[in-house]
Design a protein around this nucleic acid. Sequence first.
DNA 1: AGACATTTAAAAGTCTGACAAATGAAAATT
DNA 2: AATTTTCATTTGTCAGACTTTTAAATGTCT
Lengths: 243, 243
Amino acid sequence: MKIDPDSAADLSAQIAEAIRSAIVSGELNVDERLPSETELSDHFSVSRPTVREALKRLAAQSLIRTQRGATGGAFVNRIRYQDAYADQVTNATLLLSMNQISFDTACEARFALERACARLAAARRSADHLATMRAEIHRQSQPGLTDEAFCASDVTFHRALVDSAGNPVLSYQLAGAVEAMQPLMNMITFSARDRARIVALHTRIADGMEAQDDVAVSRGLSELEDETRALATSVFAARAAKP
Amino acid sequence: MKIDPDSAADLSAQIAEAIRSAIVSGELNVDERLPSETELSDHFSVSRPTVREALKRLAAQSLIRTQRGATGGAFVNRIRYQDAYADQVTNATLLLSMNQISFDTACEARFALERACARLAAARRSADHLATMRAEIHRQSQPGLTDEAFCASDVTFHRALVDSAGNPVLSYQLAGAVEAMQPLMNMITFSARDRARIVALHTRIADGMEAQDDVAVSRGLSELEDETRALATSVFAARAAKP
DNA sequence: AGACATTTAAAAGTCTGACAAATGAAAATT
DNA sequence: AATTTTCATTTGTCAGACTTTTAAATGTCT
């Protein structure tokens, strides 16, 4: 692990990168303890605050955790599924909100990915997953539900669908696509008739899951995609007409 | 933006979280300048080093950038596709290498996702993408290619396929699945016969793309999945037999 | 007046040295 | 032997100073 004091980059960034690559390459193993901050500042010939800034960068990426006390120090983290998942959602949300990604593009990607899970999900769905989907459909049918609650329930429904595939990698990848769209979906006002159509499609999808009929699930998702895009188009058009 | 000095968490973590949520919620806009470090340390009643540690956490996530000089300071970053992409690949790689995710699970997810792109990719593929795929197939046919180079070419081929869909969200999501598997693939030794079979399947996929026949592409991907998994199984079995 | 050089102020980057708080291990006491 | 106390180690935080970078303001010359 070496750094170049003459480089243009910040020292703390260089040090963070040196340690990060040692972790990613496997040079440092999970739960292994890094040298103390004093030792690191000695090794890199910088002050302790500089080392600390570097360590904070790594902590922000959940690559290390720190612990105080006599046997404390910085330890290499096992990347937890939960952390990576949260990161994934944050990143995807910001990408969608800050950049010029249209609702249509996001919607297209989301449903394409979701259909990718259809076959596995239909084949492997558990009674639990099915029950969750039914329960969310029931909730979505309740009158007086706010649009936000309706959207949140929608996300839960689709997460149950994705999780049914029983593949953690798929669940992880889909997290971004499904949850990142929630802020966009929240901008939509759902009329009673809109909700009825969505609930009907959800029911068809759940029926397909129950029958383990992946083609039906896939078809339901495609129709839901069309419905969602049409809804968004009309909402955005109406909003553009009278600001 | 407030913090609780009595909380168990580090002050720098709390401050980072306060600013982060201001950014994600849109309270702070892209390219907006944050207060100077001195002002922030005043506002939160902490020292400047503590504020700096918080800012480094955010910088590590590419949420802000800092600039020195008279008009310098910390600015809210527009999340660049490239940064999010790199982050996505790092996270996915660590998840796969550090946790108990089997080759089969990763492989299943990857090809399911890739098939999700097939229809759009076949419909929208440009001449450029097709040319890239053909060129990589040609490279893969060269004798004397190292296994690493073969894998790298494989990644390029599949990235071209995914990018053909013309949907940046799909490209982003797939990045993790495809590139994170490269280290796993690199553990495989490809015999000449293995390579020939893979090249044949790649050719069928490229032919399907040229004919804009998404069913053929999808079928090609499924067969490639079977081939890859069988290959991995035999390699791992052989490795287990004689260590 | 306009172009160029100089000064200056603001801000991040870094360093030194210190103290506080947490924590586990060793030593002392009961 | 069990419990309490002490102690060394390590991270967390602070204060203050100095350096470097940067751009704007100022001054100077043509």
